[in-house]
Each structure stands twice: as structure tokens, then as C-alpha cells.
């Protein structure tokens, strides 16, 4: 079967050898890169959701100064290319941290690419997540919040038991979009030299000159990630939308 395929498609055999998992092939490197990408994306998404929740609550309930500062944060981050933010935050972050350590009398440290990547992409994600969550929280009917207050729930309990579950189905489409952006933005870390999927692919392609094989294989890996997570978010949405009459975004 395989021999027959190789005879009708001459390039296939060399592609399969190039992509095999053991050292003459580069498949293992690609998968390691994909795992790195996935870890960064997960970390950045988590940091982004955390910043986004705080940002949304600050924009809705904070004082005038907090609101203006948050507006500056979301506007700037959403208007300046991620690539520049990554470079700025990477250098500035390392610098500031080391100056701080110097003040404490510690030795300067080298920030790992992984931590820097998660931090920087998390700050970028946070700006978008702030807007998504703010919109979702705003569209929870006021009557429900007033009812919660009337039952004697405090603000934390109201958020945990009423606002959060009611806004989740409204926020999920936006968050799912953000997750897809997170997986794709990890590719930008290739430019600062972090060995995630895109950089591994380029190295493999560059040293074997088999550009199409490797870039298409990496594309397939990214597509697999996005399609699977699309399924997962679809499932989450139907699950959390159960029993919510008005929740149709």
C-alpha cells in the first residue's frame, strides 16, 4: 500500500522521512515546538483572563482615574502591534526586574523565554479580555443583580453566584476568539528567538530546504489545535447556556 503511494507520489517518501520522529527526521522537534506553543498559549490565556476580569470590574465599578487608566491600557495595547509590545515589554520587563533586584542587593537574573512569553502575551490578551468581559458583565440583566442584593448576598457572593454564571455564555464566543488569537500569537515569539512551533519549523525547513513539507506540517498542527479548541468551546457554550432563556449572543 505504502509502496504504491510512494510510486504515484514521488515526493511523499522523502517528506515522510523528514517528518519522522527519530533524529534524521524533524518530527520530534516540531512536536516539542507545538507543546511549547500550547503551554505559552494556555499560560497567556490564563493571565489574560485574570487581568481581563480585574480590568472589566475596574472599568465598570472603579473610580474615574482607574477607568481612564484602564481605557489607556486597552486602547494602546489594541492599537500597537504585538511584535513591538513583545520587544518593549521583554526588554523593559527584564531591565526593571534587574534594577529592582539590584536595589535589593541581589544579582541580576536572566528571564526565561517561557516566562517572558507568557507574561507579555498575557498582558496583550488582558486588554482584549477586558473588553469582552466588560460587555458580557454589562449585559447581565440588572434585575438579577438587584434580586441577589435583596436576598442579602454581598458583592463577592453576587459575582460568584449570579454575575459570573450569567455572563459566561455571553463571554464564551469572545473568549474562544481570544484563545485562538493566543495560539496564533505564540508564533510571534519566534522573532525574539523562543523555540516554539514556528521557529522550530523554520529551522527544520531552512536546514533541509524542504520548505513546503515543514510549513504545511506546522500549518496542519496549528489547524488541529484551533479546530479541536473550537469544538471544545462550542461544547462549553451549549453546556453553560442551558436554562438561560435570553442568553443568545
Amino acid at each position: 500500500m505504502l509502496d504504491w503511494l510512494y510510486s504515484v507520489w514521488p515526493g511523499l517518501e522523502s517528506s515522510v522521512t523528514l517528518l519522522s520522529l527519530e533524529p534524521p527526521g524533524w518530527g520530534g522537534n516540531l512536536l516539542r515546538g507545538a507543546a511549547n506553543s500550547l503551554i505559552i498559549a494556555l499560560g497567556a490565556f490564563a493571565v489574560g483572563c485574570f487581568i481581563g476580569t480585574l480590568g472589566a470590574l475596574g472599568k465598570l465599578g472603579g473610580g474615574p482615574v482607574t477607568r481612564d487608566l484602564l481605557a489607556v491600557y486597552t486602547t494602546v495595547v489594541r492599537a500597537v502591534p504585538e511584535l513591538i509590545l513583545i520587544l518593549l515589554l521583554y526588554y523593559a520587563g527584564t531591565d526593571l526586574l534587574n534594577q529592582f533586584l539590584q536595589l535589593l542587593g541581589q544579582r541580576p537574573i536572566e528571564i526565561s523565554g517561557l516566562a517572558a512569553g507568557i507574561g507579555v502575551l498575557g498582558i496583550v490578551q488582558g486588554a482584549y479580555a477586558t473588553e469582552v468581559l466588560r460587555g458580557a458583565i454589562q449585559s447581565v440583566p440588572r434585575g438579577q443583580l438587584e434580586a441577589a442584593r435583596a436576598y442579602g448576598m454581598g458583592p463577592v457572593q453576587t459575582f460568584r453566584r449570579v454575575t459570573f454564571p450569567a455572563m459566561l455564555p455571553l463571554a464564551l464566543p469572545g473568549l474562544s476568539n481570544l484563545w485562538l488569537i493566543a495560539t496564533k500569537d505564540t508564533a510571534l515569539l519566534a522573532i525574539v528567538g523562543f523555540s516554539e512551533l514556528t521557529l522550530e519549523t523554520r529551522q527544520a525547513a531552512g536546514s533541509t530546504r524542504a520548505y513546503f513539507t515543514f510549513f504545511l506540517a506546522a500549518g496542519a498542527l496549528y489547524l488541529l489545535m484551533t479546530l479541536l479548541s473550537g469544538r471544545l468551546f462550542g461544547w462549553l457554550e451549549t453546556r453553560f447556556r442551558r436554562g438561560q432563556a435570553g442568553a443568545r449572543a
Partner: peptide, 16 residues
């Protein structure tokens, strides 16, 4: 297009 990073697409088109 929407499922793969633009950087990868650019490199695929340019180098490929």
C-alpha cells in the same frame, strides 16, 4: 487562513 498564524503563512509563501 484563520486557523494558522500569519507569520507561518508569510514564511510558507516567501520561502516555499
Amino acid at each position: 487562513i484563520r486557523g494558522t498564524p500569519l507569520l507561518l503563512q508569510i514564511w510558507l509563501i516567501y520561502y516555499g
